[in-house]
């Protein structure tokens, strides 16, 4: 099932139980998938038009009055366009706004350079109180939503609207701030966030075929980072490769190396976007061009293992 269908289905269930949840859209209710909610909850679904800054502050006002607003758009329009509004009316004001960004990083594909954002995790992480979720699959998102509603403080959530592939199954338990251990190994740690977990898994299989044992962590909560899981794994392997659909600056690689450089200096490398402009293209071409494929994970992992 498309991830946006999982999202809206679970949101509808939660909205039936909790009359404080409100939905805001900026002319992408149809594209994002929230449109069905407008029929069942006409009063609690608010279409603001193409006006993301206005949407952000309307949400802050609703939150200040006890509601839990979810604001939606493509990543750059919800997480970048209204950054000062997020800074002042959401973060500094400590309002319970849920900032939901669709189609992060390369998943923008044909919408191209203006819609592609590789800096959202970095900017959101830099605020002292915004929790940051990079969603892996639709099951994880569905299981996370009850927590997302009750979390205290602002939160940023990025996911791929039309994604259908899943890694987790119905037994999956979402634990905020905790990494999901997908493989136990001793030679190298691979830490992947969001959809890059798929590529990391593929690479881990290939590495294991080559006789390399991989400790594989999947991260949904980039902030607050699961420091214990990261340091434990790094202590065991002594080599850490992070994998993210984001700039190398300030995202998952930033979070992991900030932690390790202070607590447990470790050889690290990253599969991430290295200071390259955004652009248009199909998903496979873009992943190849930015070095975000399973092969890139494999290559960087083997090179990291060979480093002294």
């Amino acid at each position: 099932m498309e991830l946006r269908k999982e999202y809206v289905g679970e949101l509808a269930r939660l909205m039936r139980q909790n009359d404080k949840i409100v939905i805001l859209d900026a002319d992408l209710a149809g594209a994002g998938g929230t449109k069905p909610l407008y029929e069942e909850f006409p009063d609690r679904c608010i279409e603001v038009g193409i006006a993301e800054a206005n949407m952000t502050c309307i949400a802050a006002g609703l939150a200040a009055s006890g509601f839990v607003p979810f604001i939606h758009s493509f990543v750059p329009f919800v997480a970048r366009r209204a950054l000062d509004q997020i800074a002042v009316s959401v973060s500094y004001s400590q309002q319970n706004v849920r900032i939901v960004g669709y189609d992060p990083g390369v998943h923008t594909t044909s919408n191209g350079g203006t819609h592609m954002s590789f800096e959202d995790v970095a900017t959101m992480r830099a605020f002292c109180n915004i929790a940051v979720l990079d969603i892996v699959d639709g099951i994880q998102l569905r299981k996370a939503l009850p927590y997302i509603v009750q979390h205290q403080g602002p939160m940023y959530i990025r996911f791929v609207r039309k994604q259908t592939d899943v890694i987790f199954d119905e037994n999956y338990v979402f634990r905020f701030g905790k990494a999901d251990k997908l493989r136990d190994g001793k030679d190298i740690t691979i830490i992947a966030s969001g959809t890059m977990t798929f590529d990391a898994l593929q690479a881990a299989n290939k590495l294991e075929e080559a006789g390399i044992s991989v400790d594989l962590l999947s991260i949904h909560t980039v902030k607050p980072l699961d420091e214990q899981a990261v340091t434990e794994s790094a202590r065991k392997t002594g080599r850490v490769l992070t994998v993210e659909n984001h700039s190398i600056h300030g995202g998952l690689y930033g979070a992991v190396t900030e932690l390790l450089s202070a607590q447990l200096p470790t050889l690290c490398d990253a599969v991430a976007v290295r200071d390259k402009l955004t652009q248009v293209g199909n998903l496979n071409d873009l992943k190849r061009d930015y070095g975000l494929t399973a092969d890139d994970v494999f290559d960087r992992a083997t090179r990291l293992l060979n480093r002294r």
């Binding site: 191209g112 350079g113 819609h115 248009v280 293209g281 199909n282 873009l286 061009d289």
Partner: peptide
Amino acid sequence: NKLGTRLPSHVNINLTPGVDMTAG
């Protein structure tokens, strides 16, 4: 919209002769 194109669906001042400002 092909990778490396001079014509992205959203206009770009640096890619296309005759385009005077990036927008999207």
